[in-house]
């Protein structure tokens, strides 16, 4: 394995483009090093990008946010403004691993690991987040939902690297929430995850995005949940319809972490609970 410490994003892209074997970028390293230790993946080239300009910055981008690729979960949780505007995204990232993991793990890494159970991804999808990608052909911006294509695989092309996650401007009376189910209180991979992002007019939901994790090969954007919620004041009928839509959208597997039956059912339960949290948060926003 060759460890690279390029001096610019351009150099990083060039190294990745020239790499002949397995190439990985090191943002937080909490997945790359686990795979290395377990002999699952030993990259031929490992490109450290943490020290590059902008990689560690959380900054305003218009009324939205730009979160550099190497910003850690802990740094996100410590940013009060970000947390106030995007509590669901921040809490989703905060659920990834322990305090120690939070000191290293990143949104971008969580996304690029392409696990269907990644906690931050449903929250980012519900938030309608995009990523900025640097590559041999220059820079492009892509919705988060388009990055994972199957478990462990992304749509990124050879030589491409995500440099930032972009969150849109937070509208008035809107908020997000993320919930996951795990058997313990901490340290587990989501058995089901659900991100909900709502905008209200008065008490009526006018806009909604909903996303499910760990119930299909990739994180799902579920319009049917949103449709069930829009136009409602989150009464029981709307919640039941949203839960049913969530369960209907599931296409899970049986594995060591949960059964098809369990995931399908709990997806509905979490959808209701996350919607309630997002709704209360949105009502509390001016």
């Amino acid at each position: 394995m060759r460890y690279h410490r390029p001096t610019s994003i351009g150099d990083a892209v060039a190294i990745a483009q020239d790499a002949s074997g397995t190439c990985r970028f090191l943002a937080g390293g909490t997945d790359v090093l686990v795979q290395l230790r377990a002999d699952l993946v030993t990259p031929d080239d490992l490109i450290d990008i943490k020290h590059l300009p902008g990689m560690r910055d959380i900054s305003r981008a218009g009324d939205g946010w730009r979160i550099g690729a190497a910003v850690t979960g802990a740094e996100m949780s410590e940013n009060a403004d970000l947390k106030r505007e995007w509590p669901g995204v921040v809490e989703a990232m905060d659920l990834v691993g322990s305090t120690q993991i939070q000191g290293r793990a990143t949104l971008t890494g969580n996304l690029c690991n392409a696990s269907p159970a990644a906690d931050s991804v449903p929250a980012m999808v519900a938030a309608d987040a995009t990523v900025t990608i640097a590559g041999p052909g220059g820079e492009r911006t892509v919705p988060v939902a388009e990055i994972p294509v199957s478990p462990g695989r992304t749509s990124l092309q050879k030589g491409e690297v995500i440099t930032a996650v972009n969150l849109p401007a937070r509208a008035a009376r809107s908020a997000d929430a993320y919930l996951r189910f795990i058997p313990r209180t901490e340290m587990d991979i989501a058995v089901v995850g659900c991100g909900i992002n709502l905008t209200l007019d008065g008490d009526t939901i006018t806009h909604a995005r909903a996303s499910l994790g760990a119930v299909a090969p990739t994180v799902l954007l579920v319009d049917a949940i949103a449709d069930a919620l829009i136009g409602s004041t989150l009464g029981d009928a709307a919640l039941d319809a949203a839960a049913a839509a969530a369960s209907a959208a599931c296409n899970p597997i049986d594995d060591k972490r949960g059964t098809i039956e369990f995931r399908t059912r709990v997806a509905g339960v979490l959808t209701k609970r996350a919607a309630k949290i997002a709704y209360e948060r949105a009502r509390g926003q001016s």
Partner: peptide, 16 residues
């Protein structure tokens, strides 16, 4: 064996 790591062999953590 499917769960030969502490991540998936779930011993109680402090918050449990």
């Amino acid at each position: 064996l499917q769960n030969a790591v502490f991540l998936d062999y779930r011993i109680p953590v402090a918050s449990d």
